[in-house]
Simulated scan of single mutants.
Amino acid sequence: MERIAVLLPCYNEEQTIGKVIDDFKSELPHATIYVYDNNSSDRTSEVAESHGAVVRKEWRQGKGNVVRSMFREIEADIYVMADGDDTYPPEYVHDLIQPIRDKKANMTIGDRLSNGTYYDENKRQFHGFGNRLVKGLINRLYKSDITDIMTGYRAFDQLFVKSMPVMSSGFAIETEMSIHSLDKKFLIKEVPIDYRDRPEGSESKLNTFSDGIKVLRMIFTLFKEYKPFLFFSLWSLLSIVLGFAVGIPVITEFINTGFVSKVPSAILATGFMILGVLIFACGLILDVMTATYRKQYELELNHLYDRIRRNENEQG
């Protein structure tokens, strides 16, 4: 029988975690449900244990830290990740895991936006705008068409989980997983789901502005690391354009008079041009290094894939 692990990162979800566990047990009676308590100050752990979940602690604060420990410690064939706040309907879990079973996806995404329920249910201002902004940036950078980049309802196969280097510590983890899967060409499939807002009395841990800035910073960092040639080419182009803007009056003056009276402008323009060339050269070097890393990653992925297949054959 395939091993299914339901992963529930939690921080102060005493009010909802029991229902979430029971609902997932009803849908997946043979799955093991893991609740990772991220320093809750309420009775989240006690409630989760009383409902039959495997409860573990993650002392480093932040959802990214929880997901890192989950991926590292739990062994399964199929992983389902959701939140403990009862916003993701468990009845859609079968639609999420079926493409994983059929080997048609390494990661499935619970798309909250296509059905329109997210915008009807979510009462937090600017969250819809933030989702559209992040989605537009990533889809433009990677020429993709993912509808819901930041959803927390996902399913994974073992290959993805054991090869995912989790670098973020907080709520940028969903964005990081989306960018990583696009960059490393994992198979992705979106599954439209309904979304429901938190029940009354349950408070969101998200801060629209501070967490939004962290997500944008994560996109900026991963853009630099995954696409260094494009990243540094843009900065190089900016520097060269500034060099021309400052230097054209100097050149025009020299052509007309044979003299250069704007010496500081000439020095500044020269500095901008040199800086632009150096930035472009850095982009070229880093692009070669990134290509080498991708090749090494693919080889390591092949070794991991072979190990997973051997384990499946032994279990079969």
Rank of each mutant, 00 (worst) to 15 (best):
S265G: 03
V250N: 06
L238V: 13
G247T: 13
V277W: 05
I255F: 11
W235A: 14
S239K: 10
L242A: 13
S233R: 14
G276D: 06
E225M: 05
S233E: 11
F244H: 06
S236Q: 06
A281H: 05
V277P: 01
S265A: 11
E253L: 06
L230R: 14
F231M: 09
G276N: 09
E253K: 06
L242T: 11
A245Y: 08
A245P: 00
F244W: 09
S265M: 08
L230T: 12
L234S: 14
V277F: 09
K262T: 10
L230Q: 14
L237A: 15
T257E: 00
A269Y: 05
T252D: 10
V246R: 04
A245M: 09
I240F: 14
V260H: 03
K227P: 04
I267T: 08
Y226V: 01
S261N: 10
E225C: 00
L237K: 13
W235F: 15
V263P: 05
P264M: 08
K227N: 07
L237C: 12
V250W: 09
W235Q: 14
I267W: 04
G243I: 01
A269V: 03
P228A: 01
I279H: 04
L230S: 11
E225R: 05
G276A: 07
W235R: 15
I274M: 11
T270N: 09
V250Y: 07
T270E: 02
I255N: 05
N256E: 15
K262E: 12
I267R: 02
G258N: 03
L268T: 14
T252V: 15
P249Y: 11
K227Q: 12
F280N: 12
F229S: 05
L242W: 12
L238Y: 08
I251G: 09
K262Y: 09
E225L: 06
F280Y: 15
L242Y: 12
I240H: 09
V263A: 02
V260G: 02
P249C: 09
S233I: 12
I248H: 02
L275Y: 09
P228K: 01
G243H: 01
S233K: 14
A245Q: 03
A281F: 13
I279V: 15
V260M: 13
V263C: 03
K262N: 15
A266T: 01
T270F: 13
F254L: 15
T257M: 02
L230G: 00
G243W: 01
V250P: 07
S265R: 03
I251Q: 06
F229R: 10
L275S: 14
G276L: 09
T270H: 04
L268Y: 05
V263M: 11
F229G: 07
T257I: 00
G276P: 10
G258T: 05
I248N: 00
F280V: 08
L230P: 02
I279M: 10
K262G: 02
T252H: 11
E253G: 04
